[in-house]
Nucleic acid binder design. Structure first.
Lengths: 119, 119
DNA sequence: CAACCATACTCGGATTCCGATATATCGGGT
DNA sequence: ACCCGATATATCGGAATCCGAGTATGGTTG
């Protein structure tokens, strides 16, 4: 009996966005930065410092692991190192999404209840 | 032309929960801690250090302000200092909720697409 | 070749986190 | 009256995190 998934929660914005970027497909570092920017429509940008600090932490906790050098057959750049969500990482992300849904439900109730003035 | 609401985003988990706790009603410090614990069903607990660091920051940014000593007529404890969301604070919270909704929509799309195994 | 983009990664200062701790008051039980 | 646990505010300081500037290199394009 080890610790639950909850011991990883709540995720910081950076962790959440990194895991999220890796959910649909394996990516390399630079790709993660771009994907995060894209997913948030430029509202949230990840610098290399934040990225690699978090990546190191996520690797050590086994939420993410390194996959081979090339994700598919069309590897354009040999320098790329690809990262992939582990099953635990996926589970943690799912748990966080569930948690955030509850939070948002609460939030919307209270936000709606107090300001029905000209939405 | 000043900075937009977006300059405050994304909120850290602590900031989000504090603003959320203050959304339905004015609260005093200790009450915020309890409310955060309650709202998250004990999943997230705020220590006094985190609370007051964040409160100080939120006050200096005018997202929260101090209201009088007694929230209503039945003030039980004269020590209490109550805090209240400003209209800017409310707007920031609303913006963050909207942002998180987008994030969750993305997330659920990708999470659903890959593992519909036994919820 | 020069410039620029893609890519990986380090460094160090600033910020934030957060439990331990200090202090004081309230309320209930005996 | 007295004690004690819960309520309440707040600081401290070390650990963790953030995050842009900088370093390095290869590829691409004018």
């Amino acid at each position: 009996m080890k610790h639950t998934l909850d011991s990883f929660l709540p995720l910081s914005p950076a962790e959440l966005h990194i895991l999220l970027a890796l959910a649909p497909e394996d990516l390399h570092g630079y790709g993660i930065m771009q994907e995060v920017t894209r997913q948030s429509q430029g509202q949230y940008k990840l610098g290399p410092g934040t990225l690699y600090d978090n990546l190191k932490k996520l690797l050590s906790h086994r939420l993410v692991e390194e996959s081979g050098r090339a994700a598919s057959t069309d590897d354009r750049d040999a320098r790329r190192r690809y990262y992939r969500l582990t099953s635990v990482g996926r589970a943690v992300l799912t748990a966080e999404v569930t948690r955030l849904e509850q939070v948002l439900r609460e939030a919307k109730t209270h936000l709606r209840a107090m300001k029905p003035r000209r939405a």
